[in-house]
Nucleic acid binder design. Structure first.
Length: 217
DNA sequence: ATCCCGAGGG
DNA sequence: CCCTCTGGAT
């Protein structure tokens, strides 16, 4: 993307959605962290379906530890990777109690030290719960960054660094959600809907052959 | 590079 | 059937 197009690109996404929010359901910072961990390689809708009941019973680390691994599995069995996620969420909850007084730390290194929490999850929590100007690069943002040319890269970290450098103020705070929602509903992996994309004039990407799902990237 | 892994869509 | 979904640990 041409440098001059970056500002209008975000201005247009911002105009359509001034205060974008996560579509994950949560009731406090702890449940946000849990929901984000559960969302790995899963849809928000699927996570919300499972956490609706879970978060009625459990809203803090102590209650989660009391529920236990098997108890948690019973709630999240419909989510992919549920065995690993259940182990991680219980271990993570114990770590919060033992090392952070039962609170979610507002610190990248402390977050990434938690079981099942990597850079992407830490970035989401830092952005939503603590207001930091992070840009978590998930599958959507990795794809949108590369297609638009906002920030190309072979790894999520490379794309994240490129985005942080490319995105101007005042767009850094919400860029994460604008890009993810754009990727989820318009710049879709299999069938990007360029014909109704509001920022296509700033983007060179065109799906080559839509036959058999070859989208061209 | 591989494994983990259910639900929904095409 | 195959692909995708707000990844992380080994």
């Amino acid at each position: 993307m041409a440098k001059a197009d970056i500002e209008p690109f975000f201005a247009r996404l911002a105009a359509a959605n001034p205060e974008p929010e996560t579509e994950l359901d949560y009731v406090n910072t702890y449940t946000l962290l849990v929901a984000v961990v559960l969302s790995a390689q899963a849809t928000d809708a699927g996570v919300n379906r499972a956490t609706r009941r879970l978060f009625q019973e459990v809203q803090d680390p102590a209650a989660m530890v009391a529920l236990g691994v098997e108890g948690l599995k019973a709630h999240i069995r419909t989510i992919g990777l549920f065995n690993t996620k259940a182990e991680n969420v219980i271990a993570l909850s114990k770590a919060l109690i033992e090392k952070h007084g039962g609170e979610v730390p507002a610190d990248r290194d402390a977050l990434e030290a938690l079981p099942g929490v990597g850079r992407k999850t830490a970035n989401v929590v830092l952005n939503i719960a603590f207001g930091e100007e992070t840009c978590a690069v998930d599958t959507h943002i990795f794809r949108v960054g590369n297609r638009t040319g906002l920030a190309r890269g072979k790894t999520p970290l490379a794309v994240e660094k490129g985005l942080m450098k490319a995105i101007p103020q005042p767009y850094r705070r919400h860029a994460h959600h604008w890009l993810i929602l754009h990727g989820r509903y318009v710049c879709k992996a299999r069938t990007p809907e360029c014909w109704r994309c509001t920022v296509s004039e700033y983007c060179r990407f065109t799906p080559k052959t839509v036959i058999r799902g070859v989208s061209g990237d």
